[in-house]
Amino acid sequence: MKTFIENLPKAELHLHIEGSFEPELMFKIAKRNKIEIPYNSVEEIEEAYKFNCLQDFLDIYYQGAGVLITEQDFYDLTYSYLEKCATQNVRHTEIMFDPQTHTERGISFKTVINGISKACDDAKEKLGVSSLLIMSYLRHLSEEDAFKTLEQSIPYKDKIKAVGLDSSEKGNPPSKFKNVYEASIKVGYIPLAHAGEEGPAEYVWEAIDILDIKRIDHGNNSLQDKNLVNELVKRDIALTVCPLSNTALQVVDNLKNHPLKKMLDLGLKVTVNSDDPAYFGGQVNKNYIEIQKALDLSKFEIYTLAKNSFQYSLLENSKKQQYLNELELYYTNNK
Protein backbone atom coordinates (compact mmCIF):
# COMPACT_ATOMS: atom_id res chain seq x y z
CA MET A 1 0.00 0.00 0.00
CA LYS A 2 2.89 2.36 0.77
CA THR A 3 4.28 1.93 -2.75
CA PHE A 4 0.79 2.35 -4.22
CA ILE A 5 0.44 5.69 -2.41
CA GLU A 6 3.94 6.91 -3.24
CA ASN A 7 3.40 6.36 -6.98
CA LEU A 8 -0.19 7.60 -6.98
CA PRO A 9 -0.74 10.74 -9.12
CA LYS A 10 -2.28 13.34 -6.82
CA ALA A 11 -2.87 17.04 -6.20
CA GLU A 12 -2.35 19.01 -3.01
CA LEU A 13 -5.00 21.65 -2.33
CA HIS A 14 -4.15 22.84 1.20
CA LEU A 15 -0.57 24.01 1.60
CA HIS A 16 0.77 27.16 3.26
CA ILE A 17 4.07 28.00 1.62
CA GLU A 18 5.37 29.66 4.79
CA GLY A 19 4.56 26.41 6.58
CA SER A 20 6.81 24.41 4.25
CA PHE A 21 9.88 26.19 5.67
CA GLU A 22 12.26 23.37 6.61
CA PRO A 23 14.72 24.10 9.46
CA GLU A 24 17.78 23.71 7.21
CA LEU A 25 16.50 26.29 4.74
CA MET A 26 15.43 28.66 7.50
CA PHE A 27 18.88 28.52 9.04
CA LYS A 28 20.51 29.07 5.63
CA ILE A 29 18.33 32.10 4.72
CA ALA A 30 18.70 33.65 8.19
CA LYS A 31 22.49 33.48 7.79
CA ARG A 32 22.33 34.84 4.24
CA ASN A 33 20.26 37.81 5.41
CA LYS A 34 22.28 38.25 8.63
CA ILE A 35 19.13 37.92 10.73
CA GLU A 36 19.43 36.89 14.36
CA ILE A 37 17.15 34.00 15.26
CA PRO A 38 16.92 32.48 18.76
CA TYR A 39 18.38 29.16 17.58
CA ASN A 40 22.02 28.17 17.25
CA SER A 41 21.51 25.10 15.08
CA VAL A 42 19.11 23.28 12.79
CA GLU A 43 18.49 20.86 15.67
CA GLU A 44 17.33 23.69 17.93
CA ILE A 45 14.88 24.85 15.28
CA GLU A 46 13.57 21.29 14.93
CA GLU A 47 13.01 21.16 18.69
CA ALA A 48 11.13 24.47 18.56
CA TYR A 49 8.79 22.96 15.97
CA LYS A 50 7.12 20.95 18.75
CA PHE A 51 3.98 22.62 20.09
CA ASN A 52 0.60 21.84 21.64
CA CYS A 53 -1.99 24.07 19.99
CA LEU A 54 -2.73 26.30 17.01
CA GLN A 55 -1.59 29.51 18.71
CA ASP A 56 1.77 28.02 19.81
CA PHE A 57 2.31 26.89 16.24
CA LEU A 58 1.39 30.30 14.82
CA ASP A 59 3.88 32.04 17.13
CA ILE A 60 6.73 29.90 15.74
CA TYR A 61 5.36 30.12 12.19
CA TYR A 62 5.45 33.94 12.14
CA GLN A 63 8.90 33.99 13.72
CA GLY A 64 10.22 31.73 10.97
CA ALA A 65 8.59 33.82 8.25
CA GLY A 66 10.52 36.81 9.59
CA VAL A 67 13.75 35.72 7.92
CA LEU A 68 12.19 35.98 4.44
CA ILE A 69 13.31 39.31 3.01
CA THR A 70 14.22 39.14 -0.69
CA GLU A 71 12.59 37.80 -3.83
CA GLN A 72 15.25 35.09 -3.84
CA ASP A 73 14.17 33.98 -0.35
CA PHE A 74 10.58 33.50 -1.48
CA TYR A 75 11.78 31.75 -4.63
CA ASP A 76 13.98 29.34 -2.65
CA LEU A 77 11.20 28.58 -0.17
CA THR A 78 8.68 27.84 -2.92
CA TYR A 79 10.99 25.88 -5.22
CA SER A 80 12.12 23.70 -2.32
CA TYR A 81 8.50 22.71 -1.68
CA LEU A 82 7.82 22.11 -5.38
CA GLU A 83 10.85 19.81 -5.63
CA LYS A 84 9.28 17.71 -2.87
CA CYS A 85 6.04 17.62 -4.86
CA ALA A 86 7.89 16.22 -7.85
CA THR A 87 9.36 13.35 -5.81
CA GLN A 88 5.91 12.42 -4.41
CA ASN A 89 3.97 12.33 -7.69
CA VAL A 90 2.11 15.49 -6.73
CA ARG A 91 1.19 16.57 -10.24
CA HIS A 92 -0.56 19.79 -9.22
CA THR A 93 -0.57 21.96 -6.11
CA GLU A 94 -2.51 25.00 -4.92
CA ILE A 95 -0.27 27.13 -2.75
CA MET A 96 -1.56 29.51 -0.09
CA PHE A 97 0.57 32.51 0.80
CA ASP A 98 0.07 35.16 3.51
CA PRO A 99 0.99 38.62 2.17
CA GLN A 100 0.17 40.37 5.46
CA THR A 101 2.76 38.28 7.31
CA HIS A 102 5.36 40.00 5.14
CA THR A 103 3.94 43.41 4.26
CA GLU A 104 3.49 44.11 7.98
CA ARG A 105 7.28 43.69 8.24
CA GLY A 106 7.93 46.15 5.44
CA ILE A 107 8.39 43.57 2.67
CA SER A 108 6.64 44.66 -0.53
CA PHE A 109 3.79 42.65 -2.02
CA LYS A 110 5.79 42.67 -5.28
CA THR A 111 8.77 40.93 -3.62
CA VAL A 112 6.55 38.19 -2.20
CA ILE A 113 4.46 37.45 -5.29
CA ASN A 114 7.32 37.64 -7.78
CA GLY A 115 9.54 35.26 -5.80
CA ILE A 116 6.77 32.71 -5.35
CA SER A 117 5.38 32.91 -8.89
CA LYS A 118 8.80 32.65 -10.56
CA ALA A 119 9.48 29.46 -8.62
CA CYS A 120 6.09 28.11 -9.76
CA ASP A 121 6.88 28.93 -13.39
CA ASP A 122 10.27 27.23 -13.18
CA ALA A 123 8.83 24.15 -11.47
CA LYS A 124 6.23 23.73 -14.18
CA GLU A 125 8.94 23.80 -16.84
CA LYS A 126 11.66 21.83 -15.06
CA LEU A 127 9.73 19.50 -12.75
CA GLY A 128 6.41 19.05 -14.51
CA VAL A 129 4.45 20.25 -11.45
CA SER A 130 1.62 22.70 -12.13
CA SER A 131 0.49 25.17 -9.47
CA LEU A 132 -1.98 27.94 -8.68
CA LEU A 133 -1.73 30.61 -5.97
CA ILE A 134 -4.24 31.37 -3.20
CA MET A 135 -3.84 34.72 -1.44
CA SER A 136 -4.89 34.24 2.18
CA TYR A 137 -6.20 36.95 4.47
CA LEU A 138 -5.13 36.72 8.12
CA ARG A 139 -8.29 36.47 10.16
CA HIS A 140 -6.77 37.76 13.42
CA LEU A 141 -6.26 41.09 11.65
CA SER A 142 -9.04 43.49 10.66
CA GLU A 143 -11.12 43.46 7.51
CA GLU A 144 -9.65 46.89 6.79
CA ASP A 145 -6.18 45.29 6.69
CA ALA A 146 -7.52 42.61 4.33
CA PHE A 147 -8.83 45.34 2.01
CA LYS A 148 -5.33 46.86 1.86
CA THR A 149 -3.96 43.48 0.80
CA LEU A 150 -6.66 43.13 -1.84
CA GLU A 151 -5.72 46.54 -3.25
CA GLN A 152 -2.02 45.61 -3.26
CA SER A 153 -2.80 42.43 -5.20
CA ILE A 154 -4.62 44.08 -8.12
CA PRO A 155 -1.51 44.71 -10.29
CA TYR A 156 -0.62 41.00 -9.90
CA LYS A 157 -4.07 39.45 -10.19
CA ASP A 158 -3.00 37.44 -13.23
CA LYS A 159 -0.75 35.45 -10.87
CA ILE A 160 -3.45 34.77 -8.24
CA LYS A 161 -6.35 32.33 -8.66
CA ALA A 162 -8.22 32.56 -5.36
CA VAL A 163 -8.45 34.14 -1.91
CA GLY A 164 -8.42 32.23 1.37
CA LEU A 165 -8.83 32.91 5.07
CA ASP A 166 -6.41 31.48 7.65
CA SER A 167 -4.69 32.06 11.02
CA SER A 168 -6.45 32.03 14.42
CA GLU A 169 -9.99 30.77 13.87
CA LYS A 170 -11.50 31.12 17.34
CA GLY A 171 -13.20 34.49 17.76
CA ASN A 172 -12.66 35.40 14.10
CA PRO A 173 -15.72 34.11 12.23
CA PRO A 174 -15.96 34.19 8.43
CA SER A 175 -18.68 36.86 8.65
CA LYS A 176 -16.00 39.31 9.84
CA PHE A 177 -14.71 39.34 6.23
CA LYS A 178 -18.02 39.55 4.34
CA ASN A 179 -17.25 42.83 2.56
CA VAL A 180 -13.70 42.04 1.49
CA TYR A 181 -14.85 38.70 0.10
CA GLU A 182 -17.55 40.40 -1.95
CA ALA A 183 -14.89 42.76 -3.31
CA SER A 184 -12.47 39.88 -3.96
CA ILE A 185 -15.07 38.01 -5.99
CA LYS A 186 -15.69 41.15 -8.08
CA VAL A 187 -11.96 41.28 -8.85
CA GLY A 188 -12.23 37.73 -10.18
CA TYR A 189 -10.77 35.70 -7.29
CA ILE A 190 -12.35 32.36 -6.35
CA PRO A 191 -13.44 32.42 -2.66
CA LEU A 192 -12.08 29.75 -0.30
CA ALA A 193 -11.75 29.72 3.51
CA HIS A 194 -10.54 27.77 6.52
CA ALA A 195 -13.54 26.83 8.66
CA GLY A 196 -14.43 24.20 11.23
CA GLU A 197 -10.89 23.34 12.32
CA GLU A 198 -11.00 24.78 15.84
CA GLY A 199 -14.14 26.80 15.15
CA PRO A 200 -17.66 25.34 15.31
CA ALA A 201 -19.93 24.09 12.53
CA GLU A 202 -21.53 27.54 12.54
CA TYR A 203 -18.33 28.95 11.03
CA VAL A 204 -18.68 26.54 8.12
CA TRP A 205 -22.26 27.70 7.58
CA GLU A 206 -21.01 31.30 7.55
CA ALA A 207 -18.27 30.44 5.07
CA ILE A 208 -20.65 28.85 2.57
CA ASP A 209 -23.62 31.20 3.07
CA ILE A 210 -21.99 34.59 3.75
CA LEU A 211 -18.65 34.30 1.94
CA ASP A 212 -19.99 32.02 -0.82
CA ILE A 213 -16.85 29.88 -0.64
CA LYS A 214 -16.26 27.10 -3.16
CA ARG A 215 -14.11 24.79 -1.01
CA ILE A 216 -13.69 24.35 2.76
CA ASP A 217 -10.20 24.11 4.23
CA HIS A 218 -10.31 21.57 7.09
CA GLY A 219 -14.03 21.37 7.92
CA ASN A 220 -13.69 18.66 10.59
CA ASN A 221 -16.35 20.17 12.81
CA SER A 222 -18.92 20.05 10.01
CA LEU A 223 -19.78 16.65 11.47
CA GLN A 224 -21.30 18.39 14.50
CA ASP A 225 -24.29 19.32 12.31
CA LYS A 226 -26.10 16.72 10.22
CA ASN A 227 -27.89 19.41 8.22
CA LEU A 228 -24.55 21.01 7.39
CA VAL A 229 -23.15 17.69 6.17
CA ASN A 230 -26.19 17.25 3.94
CA GLU A 231 -25.78 20.80 2.63
CA LEU A 232 -22.08 20.29 1.81
CA VAL A 233 -22.96 17.11 -0.09
CA LYS A 234 -25.84 18.84 -1.87
CA ARG A 235 -23.70 21.82 -2.92
CA ASP A 236 -20.79 19.53 -3.86
CA ILE A 237 -18.31 21.47 -1.69
CA ALA A 238 -15.07 19.63 -1.03
CA LEU A 239 -13.06 19.57 2.22
CA THR A 240 -9.27 19.87 2.22
CA VAL A 241 -8.47 17.69 5.22
CA CYS A 242 -5.01 17.62 6.85
CA PRO A 243 -4.57 14.51 9.07
CA LEU A 244 -1.09 15.10 10.55
CA SER A 245 -1.88 18.75 11.14
CA ASN A 246 -5.01 17.74 13.04
CA THR A 247 -3.07 15.52 15.44
CA ALA A 248 -0.16 17.98 15.83
CA LEU A 249 -2.59 20.73 16.87
CA GLN A 250 -4.72 18.30 18.90
CA VAL A 251 -7.81 18.91 16.80
CA VAL A 252 -7.89 15.10 16.77
CA ASP A 253 -6.31 13.19 19.67
CA ASN A 254 -5.24 10.18 17.59
CA LEU A 255 -5.29 9.38 13.87
CA LYS A 256 -7.32 6.27 14.65
CA ASN A 257 -10.10 8.65 15.75
CA HIS A 258 -9.82 10.89 12.69
CA PRO A 259 -13.20 11.53 11.00
CA LEU A 260 -11.89 11.19 7.42
CA LYS A 261 -13.40 7.75 6.77
CA LYS A 262 -16.70 8.81 8.28
CA MET A 263 -16.65 11.87 6.02
CA LEU A 264 -16.17 9.66 2.97
CA ASP A 265 -18.94 7.33 4.08
CA LEU A 266 -21.30 10.32 4.46
CA GLY A 267 -20.63 11.33 0.88
CA LEU A 268 -18.41 14.31 1.60
CA LYS A 269 -15.77 15.07 -1.03
CA VAL A 270 -12.60 14.77 1.03
CA THR A 271 -9.01 15.42 -0.03
CA VAL A 272 -5.76 14.73 1.86
CA ASN A 273 -3.18 17.48 2.31
CA SER A 274 -0.17 18.46 4.43
CA ASP A 275 -1.14 22.01 5.54
CA ASP A 276 2.24 23.10 7.02
CA PRO A 277 4.46 20.06 6.38
CA ALA A 278 7.69 21.38 7.91
CA TYR A 279 5.90 21.91 11.22
CA PHE A 280 3.45 19.01 11.25
CA GLY A 281 5.80 16.13 10.58
CA GLY A 282 5.10 15.14 7.02
CA GLN A 283 4.58 15.97 3.36
CA VAL A 284 1.42 14.88 1.58
CA ASN A 285 2.53 11.27 0.96
CA LYS A 286 3.15 10.77 4.66
CA ASN A 287 -0.36 12.10 5.35
CA TYR A 288 -1.79 9.53 2.95
CA ILE A 289 0.34 6.71 4.36
CA GLU A 290 -0.41 7.46 8.02
CA ILE A 291 -4.15 7.96 7.59
CA GLN A 292 -4.39 4.80 5.48
CA LYS A 293 -2.73 2.78 8.25
CA ALA A 294 -4.75 4.38 11.04
CA LEU A 295 -8.15 3.91 9.37
CA ASP A 296 -7.34 0.82 7.25
CA LEU A 297 -8.40 2.59 4.08
CA SER A 298 -8.77 0.48 0.95
CA LYS A 299 -7.02 1.13 -2.36
CA PHE A 300 -10.34 2.34 -3.73
CA GLU A 301 -10.69 4.85 -0.89
CA ILE A 302 -7.14 6.10 -1.47
CA TYR A 303 -7.90 6.37 -5.19
CA THR A 304 -11.08 8.30 -4.34
CA LEU A 305 -9.13 10.79 -2.22
CA ALA A 306 -6.68 11.37 -5.08
CA LYS A 307 -9.53 11.64 -7.58
CA ASN A 308 -11.18 14.29 -5.40
CA SER A 309 -7.91 16.22 -5.27
CA PHE A 310 -7.97 16.71 -9.05
CA GLN A 311 -11.75 17.01 -9.40
CA TYR A 312 -12.02 19.78 -6.80
CA SER A 313 -8.88 21.64 -7.81
CA LEU A 314 -9.18 25.09 -9.40
CA LEU A 315 -7.76 23.86 -12.69
CA GLU A 316 -9.49 24.30 -16.03
CA ASN A 317 -11.63 21.27 -16.92
CA SER A 318 -9.35 20.08 -19.73
CA LYS A 319 -6.33 19.98 -17.42
CA LYS A 320 -8.38 18.28 -14.69
CA GLN A 321 -9.40 15.61 -17.16
CA GLN A 322 -5.81 15.04 -18.22
CA TYR A 323 -4.77 14.37 -14.62
CA LEU A 324 -7.88 12.27 -13.93
CA ASN A 325 -7.09 10.10 -16.95
CA GLU A 326 -3.56 9.61 -15.68
CA LEU A 327 -4.89 8.62 -12.25
CA GLU A 328 -7.48 6.25 -13.73
CA LEU A 329 -4.82 4.46 -15.76
CA TYR A 330 -2.59 4.12 -12.70
CA TYR A 331 -5.41 2.74 -10.55
CA THR A 332 -6.59 0.29 -13.22
CA ASN A 333 -3.06 -1.09 -13.53
CA ASN A 334 -2.42 -1.29 -9.78
CA LYS A 335 -5.67 -2.44 -8.14
Score class of each variant (00 low, 15 high):
residue 34 K to Y: 10
residue 115 G to E: 08
residue 245 S to A: 15
residue 105 R to Q: 13
residue 324 L to I: 14
residue 263 M to K: 02
residue 35 I to G: 02
residue 235 R to A: 10
residue 78 T to V: 14
residue 91 R to E: 14
residue 63 Q to R: 12
residue 155 P to M: 13
residue 42 V to M: 06
residue 22 E to C: 06
residue 83 E to I: 14
residue 196 G to C: 03
residue 270 V to C: 15
residue 64 G to S: 14
residue 326 E to V: 08
residue 207 A to P: 02
residue 55 Q to K: 06
residue 137 Y to D: 00
residue 135 M to A: 05
residue 48 A to S: 14
residue 137 Y to W: 10
residue 49 Y to W: 00
residue 277 P to Y: 08
residue 329 L to D: 06
residue 331 Y to G: 03
residue 16 H to K: 13
residue 20 S to Y: 15
residue 222 S to W: 03
residue 126 K to I: 05
residue 258 H to C: 08
residue 206 E to I: 05
residue 253 D to E: 15
residue 319 K to V: 07
residue 28 K to Q: 06
residue 6 E to V: 00
residue 269 K to Y: 12
residue 181 Y to A: 11
residue 201 A to F: 05
residue 163 V to I: 15
residue 297 L to A: 08
residue 50 K to R: 10
residue 103 T to F: 14
residue 159 K to A: 09
residue 235 R to P: 12
residue 111 T to K: 03
residue 269 K to V: 04
residue 238 A to M: 08
residue 286 K to W: 02
residue 91 R to M: 15
residue 268 L to K: 12
residue 210 I to Y: 06
residue 131 S to W: 12
residue 188 G to A: 13
residue 102 H to P: 06
residue 247 T to Q: 07
residue 329 L to G: 02
residue 182 E to A: 12
residue 45 I to D: 10
residue 27 F to Q: 07
residue 278 A to M: 02
residue 315 L to G: 02
residue 115 G to W: 13
residue 237 I to G: 07
residue 8 L to K: 10
residue 236 D to Q: 10
residue 249 L to C: 12
residue 207 A to V: 01
residue 297 L to T: 10
residue 13 L to D: 10
residue 111 T to R: 01
residue 265 D to N: 13
residue 138 L to F: 08
residue 110 K to P: 04
residue 25 L to P: 01
residue 210 I to K: 02
residue 251 V to L: 15
residue 16 H to R: 06
residue 178 K to Q: 11
residue 109 F to L: 06
residue 318 S to V: 02
residue 65 A to F: 10
residue 52 N to D: 09
residue 232 L to E: 09
residue 90 V to I: 15
residue 235 R to E: 10
residue 128 G to P: 08
residue 190 I to S: 01
residue 244 L to F: 02
residue 268 L to N: 15
residue 197 E to D: 06
residue 104 E to D: 11
residue 175 S to T: 14
residue 171 G to R: 00
residue 129 V to Y: 01
residue 137 Y to Q: 00
residue 53 C to A: 09
residue 108 S to W: 01
residue 237 I to Q: 01
residue 270 V to W: 04
residue 141 L to T: 03
residue 203 Y to E: 07
residue 329 L to H: 04
residue 81 Y to R: 01
residue 98 D to R: 03
residue 175 S to R: 14
residue 77 L to M: 09
residue 328 E to Q: 06
residue 128 G to W: 13
residue 300 F to P: 00
residue 170 K to Q: 04
residue 131 S to R: 12
residue 11 A to F: 07
residue 158 D to M: 07
residue 328 E to W: 00
residue 21 F to M: 05
residue 306 A to G: 09
residue 266 L to C: 08
residue 11 A to I: 07
residue 61 Y to A: 13
residue 137 Y to K: 00
residue 251 V to G: 01
residue 273 N to F: 08
residue 314 L to A: 03
residue 309 S to N: 05
residue 214 K to T: 10
residue 302 I to C: 08
residue 141 L to F: 15
residue 229 V to L: 08
residue 151 E to F: 08
residue 33 N to H: 04
residue 218 H to W: 12
residue 102 H to W: 07
residue 172 N to W: 04
residue 40 N to H: 14
residue 82 L to R: 02
residue 6 E to L: 01
residue 41 S to F: 01
residue 25 L to T: 05
residue 18 E to Q: 10
residue 122 D to R: 13
residue 275 D to V: 03
residue 313 S to L: 06
residue 135 M to V: 14
residue 108 S to R: 00
